[in-house]
């Protein structure tokens, strides 16, 4: 059933990483990404890699799930590396026809490759260990201060969680509509691009109409249950920092210090 598709890619397990407060995980992912851009040498990447490996190990998520996300960026990765490899000026090692590979080029390509792989792995780890729901809660709480400058943080996060709930339903509905139209001879698979776009009309019209109806129904149902925005609302599952979350923050700070010292200052 299409309804089983979860957005993001949550992997159910009961690990330390899973149990961490979503805010910690968001901050950690952010810190990790920043760290990747701070480091200038391979020792730095080694530290980042080790840190990531330890986190993956702790999360109990099988590595194949983590590397599955890599498939989608494979081409991006290759292109980035090739560009850096050939287009970096410096001391040539190898030349043929108009191309030359330089020492700097190899170094830069390797660094870019590692950086991208780490970046994707790190953020996948966050989405694999945090339910979309938790993630929105975490974001809402972290962005809370923005409320002061009139950013509708609560509304944004409510919209996100409603979207998360309805995307699988709408995907299933898309499938049903497609089949209903195919039963009348509609063709969604062949023809030129223009024709294909035209052929989408019988799919999109019913889908939009249904989406609007659902939105309308849902708004009414929410109102009937006394929803009136974030003001005065309590939470069934408030985010409360536990001891392990403070430890995690400490680990993140230590990691950042270590990476700045080792990756930037000590070994230039």
């Amino acid at each position: 059933m299409l309804r089983d598709i979860t957005l993001g890619q949550y992997y159910r397990a009961d690990s330390v990483i899973h149990r961490l407060d979503p805010r910690v995980k968001i901050v950690a992912t952010f810190a990790f990404i920043i760290s990747l851009f701070i480091v200038k040498n391979f020792i730095g990447y080694l530290i980042a890699g080790l840190f990531l490996a330890v986190c993956i190990r702790l999360s109990q998520v099988p590595p194949r799930f983590i590397f599955r996300g890599m498939k989608t960026i494979f081409f991006l990765l290759i292109i980035t590396m090739v560009f850096n490899l050939f287009l970096t000026a410096g001391e040539p090692i190898f030349t043929f026809w108009k191309f030359q590979i330089t020492k700097e080029g190899i170094k830069l390509a390797a660094m870019m490759g590692i950086r991208l792989v780490f970046l994707i792995t790190g953020s996948s780890l966050m989405t694999l260990t945090t339910t979309p729901n938790n993630l929105t809660d975490g974001l809402e709480s972290l962005l809370g201060p923005l409320k002061k400058v009139r950013v509708p943080v609560h509304e944004i996060s409510m919209m996100m969680s409603i979207a998360l709930r309805f995307i699988p339903i709408l995907m299933e509905e898309t499938d049903k509509i497609m089949k209903a139209q195919m039963a009348r001879g509609a063709d969604f698979e062949s023809g030129s691009i223009i024709n294909r776009a035209k052929n989408l009309v019988p799919l999109l019209v019913p889908l939009f109409i249904s989406a609007f109806r659902r939105a309308n129904d849902l708004a009414m149902a929410m109102e009937a249950r006394c929803y009136r925005g974030g003001e005065g609302r309590t939470k069934m599952k408030p985010l409360i920092y536990k001891k392990r979350d403070f430890i995690a923050y400490l680990v993140i700070v230590l990691y950042l210090v270590l990476i700045v010292v080792m990756g930037r200052i000590l070994f230039r």
Binding site: K179, A180, Q181, M182, A183, R184, P206, I209, S210
Partner: peptide
């Protein structure tokens, strides 16, 4: 299959899924 689908006609549960 296109010819088949015109000979074996299938009307789905909700008309909302096909009217456009």
């Amino acid at each position: 299959k296109k010819v088949l689908r015109s000979q074996v006609g299938l009307v789905f549960q909700y008309p909302e899924h096909q009217l456009f």
